[in-house]
Amino acid sequence: MTPLPRSAPLLELDHVAKAFGPHVAVEDFSLAVAPGEFISFLGPSGCGKTTTLQMIAGFLQPSRGTIRLEGRDLTSVHPSKRGLGIVFQSYALFPHMTAAENVAFGLEMQRVSRSERTERVRAALAMVGLAGYEDRHPRRMSGGQQQRVALARALVIRPSVLLLDEPLSNLDAKLREEMQIELRQIQRNLGTTTILVTHDQGEALSLSDRIVVMSKGRIEQIGTPQDTYERPSSAFVAQFLGKTNDFAAKVEGAAPARIVAGGWSAPAPVGVRGPVTVSVRPERIGFSDEGLPARVVARIFQGNHWLFQCETECGPAIVVRPNDGLAQPGEGEAVRLAWRPEDMSVSTGAAA
């Protein structure tokens, strides 16, 4: 069942689907977005996240289902009349216009007076850190500055919902991280309801109130970043949203039954039988005197933490441990791996 926000929804997608001939791009997509929420559509290329965003924007019509904004059916509403702000991956700035002219474009279409337009453009550029850049053309601006202009242009019209189609993907890693922080601060300060399309797991985790994980046109899971990461509802979510270890295990005994993986064991969930797969995040595994026997194949220093690649009889394992100044196992060393039962998820069937 799709979790709903506690407050009355601002935007609702009710069993929305989109097909292009025989190809179904989006199937049975339902979501309620509360005012002020930051939602991320996350998934691999071709999963339907951009198609869903384009249906919200009005660039594509749903094959079936309904999209409502503040209770109003948007099916027959033209994109320009929906009151939505959009930032594209390419920024789509007008090269012959200055930053101020680009930002003012939407206000001109709304027939806002010149005096109000000038003040709102000035405020929007200042909000994104571009005060003093009003007369600069896009060709004389960096990628990060162009991204800020595009964001200011989308926000200056005071949209009911801000739609972001991978707006940071063209930036280098350092600038992208900086812009993520700025984007989140701006969104929090304005309280603008925002939907982001991204394939970057870290971006979705750091920005979102809730994440909609998609695969092959369908919703796999909706939840907060922490819940989605720590309690994935499927093997796909666990693998896509960060690294995870899958151990082949079996259920032994009855009343109470136990899951056994090598030298590690824990109480089995009620009703689980036969071969199972135990999934554990790398940072939830520790080295212990008791547990699953393993051998360190490689260890990699990554600044604030160590990454260990291990071999076990139940499958390969990646272990991430903090750099706490203590001695760490060396390559080739025999170790035992252990984790808390609450830090694992269990699925029926053998690990792939």
Rank of each mutant, 00 (worst) to 15 (best):
R273S: 15
C314T: 08
L175C: 03
S115R: 14
S115A: 11
G202K: 05
L175A: 07
T192L: 08
L162D: 04
G253Y: 04
T193A: 11
A334W: 01
G71Q: 02
A235F: 15
S113R: 09
L151V: 14
G85R: 00
L241G: 06
T348K: 13
F105Y: 13
P275V: 05
I219L: 03
V103P: 05
L241K: 02
A57N: 06
R295V: 15
R284S: 15
H199A: 10
G330K: 00
R153H: 14
V319T: 00
A104H: 05
Q180R: 14
A104C: 04
V26F: 02
E166K: 04
R299I: 11
A124Q: 10
S215C: 10
A248L: 12
G132S: 09
E101L: 00
G83H: 03
I186T: 03
Q61A: 15
S279F: 07
S215F: 10
S234N: 09
V270I: 12
I186L: 12
R258C: 06
V278S: 00
G271I: 02
A131I: 06
K216W: 03
V33W: 15
Q180C: 09
F20C: 12
P9F: 08
T348Q: 14
G21A: 05
A92V: 11
D289V: 11
N102A: 09
G242W: 01
V33T: 01
P267S: 09
L155G: 09
V24Q: 03
L53K: 05
W339P: 00
K174I: 02
G263I: 14
R336Y: 14
V128P: 15
P62E: 07
G132M: 07
A32P: 15
L31A: 11
H23A: 12
S45M: 05
G303A: 03
I56R: 01
D165T: 06
K18V: 12
E177Y: 08
T118A: 15
A327Q: 07
D324C: 06
D246F: 10
G315H: 03
Q147S: 10
H23F: 03
